[in-house]
Simulated assay, not measured.
Amino acid sequence: MSATHSERPRLAALCDEEVARALPALPDWRVVTLGPCGSSGSDASGAPARQGLQRSWRFASFPEAMAFLQTLVEPLEALNHHPRIESNWRELTLTFTTWDAGQRLTALDMEAALAVEALYLSSASRSTNST
């Protein structure tokens, strides 16, 4: 995908201070260091650490977790930004990173996480426990 001029600022890697300023709007999300292929883990190559923005939820049941995941399809497709998705029975974990920025966090990751958070808060599933 080639970015248009208007998309470039959204795809520029954020510095640590910019990430820190954005996180208060996403209190249940955390910055994680990504290993090979976007998995959580460490990178000893000496290159700038690859980062992800991650959140987990625990739902009452597997169908409830999958129903919430389904609500994310259209909004995230509209942003053209897709998370790493991990599902373990009734626990769901999403991790955003921008591959085009060297697996660093960008404004697009923050925008996507805010969209997911808004959908979670407005969903019928919000009575479940968050982890």
Rank of each mutant, 00 (worst) to 15 (best):
A101V: 01
L76F: 08
E77K: 08
R30F: 01
W99H: 13
W99F: 09
V31Y: 10
A44T: 13
T95C: 10
Q103V: 00
L114C: 08
I85S: 03
A25R: 15
N129R: 12
R30A: 14
L53D: 01
G46P: 05
E18K: 09
A78V: 06
L79M: 08
D100R: 14
W99S: 10
G41F: 02
A44S: 15
W99A: 11
A67D: 07
A60G: 13
P27K: 05
A13N: 10
H82D: 06
F62M: 00
E91D: 10
E117L: 06
A67G: 08
S40H: 09
L119A: 08
D16K: 02
M66V: 12
E117R: 06
S6Y: 14
R58I: 11
P27C: 11
E111T: 07
A118Y: 00
S61T: 15
L76W: 13
S6C: 09
D28V: 08
Y120K: 03
S127D: 12
L119H: 15
P24V: 07
F62A: 03
H81E: 10
A67Q: 05
N129K: 14
P75W: 13
P24H: 10
T93R: 14
Q103C: 08
D16Q: 15
W99I: 11
G35F: 01
P48N: 10
C37N: 12
P9Y: 04
S61D: 06
L72T: 03
V73A: 13
R21W: 03
G41H: 02
Q51G: 02
